[in-house]
Amino acid sequence: MNLIAKKTNISNSFFIFRTLTQNYVKETVNAHEVEHHSNMKEYWWNSNGPLNALHSFNPLRVSFIINGLTNMKKIETKNIGTRQSLENIKILDVGCGGGILTEALARIDGNVTGIDPSKELITIANDHSVILRNKNIIYFNESIEEHALSNTESYDAIVTSEVLEHVSNKYGFLTKCIDCLKPGGSLFVTTPNRTICSWLSVIVLGETLNFIPKGTHEWEKFICPHELQSILENNCECDTISINGLSYDPFTNRWSWTDSTDLSYALHAVKRI
């Protein structure tokens, strides 16, 4: 009992310390994070390259988004199970990077906007999107604060995949995201958990064995599902629909759903009407 109480105390004080320090950061964008990710522009679209984990993640996260929107009855019945499943659905991809997920969503006829603070990556994304013909995709080089100014309550869904772990001011970031969401719209987040397991696999194994480019992640900035849930439910007027655990096998380069959220997770929340 004592031990558990002590452990909770430590983690609580750690959490308070983190919230205190992070609340001083107003910007949701860190300059050094943007610089680091901009340096990946050479191999962003190389599906055999260092970012192959992001490429192979697509089938799972796209089906997570499709299933979430189907459950919320946003997808027209005639489009369920076809390659037009996101027809007429307005989606914002926050932190789209080179557009790996953005393009997949546009390909199944989503009306997709991608934003990213890195100018280089938006150039890459624009350049690559030429491969899509007659699809609704548009990119802007701006942060979520800037985007929220002119796009209040205008999206059916907001996706921020593998982005939250790079954001210092999570509270500010999430509230701005929700501002852009129509009431009843869905927010989809995928991000690694902050556990010993994720530290060992992402930082120690992933970055030392070069499955992930070195220096991509700062474990301290990772967010636990309950923390994310509490921000969304207490501050953003959202209801959490589901939290699903994810696991990744670097040797076969495959992602799969699991019961445990220890490594990484996907969260679906809906803005209250």
Binding site: N126, V130, E142
Partner: peptide
Amino acid sequence: YQRMIFISSSRTHLKTNMMLLNSSANRL
């Protein structure tokens, strides 16, 4: 973080006319 408009100056116009987006992207 200024807004970068790469494809065309008119954003709303682009959103409505995607054919144009593709052809202008080609031109770019």
